[in-house]
Design a protein around this nucleic acid. Sequence first.
DNA 1: TCTGGGGTCCTAGGACCC
DNA 2: TCTGGGGTCCTAGGACCC
Length: 423
Amino acid sequence: MFCLIDINNFYASCECVFRPDLVRKALIVLSSNDGCVIARSQEAKDLGISMGAPFFEIEHLIKRYKVNVFSSNFTLYGDMSRRFSEVVASFSEDLEIYSIDEIFLKVPSHEENLNGFGNRIRKTVFQYLGLPISIGFAPTKTLAKVANFFAKKDPVYGGVCVLETQKDISHALKILPVEEIWGVGRKLSLKLRGLGINFAKDLSEADPKWIRKIHSVVLEKTLRELQGIPCFSLETAPSSPKSIQVSRSFGRTLSKTEDIQVPLSSFLEQGALKLRKRGLFAFGLYFYLGVKTTKAGRLFFLSKFLVFPEGVQDPRLMVESVFKALPSIFKEGVFYKKAGILLINLKPQEAQLTLFSSQAPFKGSSDEKYKTLFKAVDRLSKKHGKRSLCLASSLSSYWEPKRKNMSPSYTTKWTDLPFVVIR
DNA sequence: TCTGGGGTCCTAGGACCC
DNA sequence: TCTGGGGTCCTAGGACCC
């Protein structure tokens, strides 16, 4: 059995821990620049304040109902999240930290009373951290998400919902709207509804092969998970990130080079810090600027990609390269709203000078020889980050073995390259 | 006027190879 | 003149998650 533990209204609940007087009051947390709503207490949700709503649009509600407003404090939330996982880890060794406020758990085999187990976790987390949580139990991760949904929405469960029997599962799927399924987003739910799949039950009863054909293998897995067949396993080992991003909206428009350089270098500094903390080097980096378009709220992004064939971790080096390349996307007189950097191709060690080799057979003239070599360099360049240097090349002749049991042999001669090839 | 920030993964289609 | 079939790799774009 899987179990999904989720903190209710996480950011809002974190703020309440330090302001107990605000428990059971309407409270919201705003994004950076206090632009829009990113978390709401239950009472704020009940007032009709929606997720992601721009602050100016709900200002009248804030005033009328005296809603408590907080700017976000991600350092605090990150710290609470870490403590949350420490407490939960004392209940089971097999756990996956899925997000800042969610943890998947494999239920230890000796736990027979799931409701009791769930209530013990709830009590402990509240006692140690003051955070309210919801818990869902089920045979697959997707179904545990479903169980968690009901544990949170329906007060009859008291925060713990167990979906174990076929009857309970079937009943839950019958009333769960398709867009509430884990992995089914806005677009997909519209598509599914168009096909007459309105509830989770409909998806679970569809033909898996057909679902794969009309959408993807992932949705097929989701379908099987709804049937109780586990397709997504617990990812217990914390994985190394594949990209690191730092970005911000400015809150006002910027149009001078120097004004853009300040946030960019700060982002690179923060990105580099994250790299160092994890012992990673970036072999590529994007930086981008967002310009407001005529369409309300829409941004258009200009970006530039830089390659670091030997890997970077040093922020000064990154800043230098980015500033140098900035004019290629920056224009005087344009008003920028947002900027960011994205570090990719992250690897644990600084690259050594590596020699790559490639072999390609050919017969014939000297022209063909160079053609073959160019091709080999091209292939290597593509394979190893689009920039490589052809330092040397050799030609080998092949000799048939003269006797049985003898391996074929090669003689190698280094060629005189007329020039060095840089790609 | 004012609209977040940080991730992952899949697919389609083209280029290329044998 | 006839013109297969199977594979890999890469990229852009889209969708999803919190």
